[in-house]
Amino acid sequence: MTMSGIAFPSLHHRKRKRSGWRGLLYIAPAMALVTVFFVLPVLFTVWMSLHKWPLLGKPAWIGFGNYVRMVSDARFMAALGFTAHYTIIVTIAIFALAFPLAMFVEKPRPLVSAYRTIIFLPVVVGLASASLLWVWLANVDSGLFAPLMQRLGLTNGRINLLADFDTAFLTIIVMVVWKIAGFTMIILLTGLQAIPAELTEAARIDGARRWQRFRYLTLPLMRRTMALALILSVTGSILAFDQFYIMTSGGPQNRMISVVYYIFNQSFVSFNLGYGAALSIALLAILVTISIFQLWLLNVGDERP
């Protein structure tokens, strides 16, 4: 007691200094995790991308050779094009379904938690398992869709859904929407529930119609939530791999090679780890750019609600 009494005058200063260190100490585990599992691997990937790095044998320094090759690589460009095509379509499809669903399950109505659960269920299935399940569903002989459509007289004979680009692409889009929409719905639901009921009520009293309330009240207040859902969906779609690998092995005549699939092929089929690393860095740059652009577009971070 007496000791602390004596030390009192300098305690305030010491406390501030100590709390700085203490703060560092608190975030140290997180920092260590990020450093070991993100920063170091990325740096190593950059290092690899500057080499001709075969899976077997000795790496050789080639500077920016891999990046130069990338620019004129028609197959990489095709993969980028396909990934963009896929991302746009699947994101629109997910939102087109998830938004109405979120509004549907937000209102208190009988059995609402049952609806929520049912819609959310596919989310807890792994993407690889879901893909395998749908490979079977889409199988022309032993599956569900083709024989069912034949039975119902919709098609003349059995159609092999996975053999043609358009139908295979449609099958994959439907599968992904089935699998992901529930997740997006939950995110949007939290946003909807965060809108104070008084605001909606006030708007209603002021005579705003249903569409006006949605356009001028709900949408602006949902901006942050939408940004989160959009970024998650776009990032997930750009990194798509499992469904194409499992369901179509790259699709009829290689028309479903996504960027990640191409990186996988370069790294582990052709054994060009260096080139695969360079492609990964390029993809990282693209993802960061797109995410920043989305945040800017949705004006997130400018103001605090």
Binding site: S249, P252, N265, V269
Partner: peptide, 22 residues
């Protein structure tokens, strides 16, 4: 052999599907 023939995204595998079913 892997790059040319066996890889399911290689030219031979693609050719077979495109030439016979395309």
């Amino acid at each position: 052999f892997n790059d040319l023939i066996n890889s399911s995204n290689g030219p031979w595998a693609t050719f077979i599907n495109a030439a016979i079913y395309g």
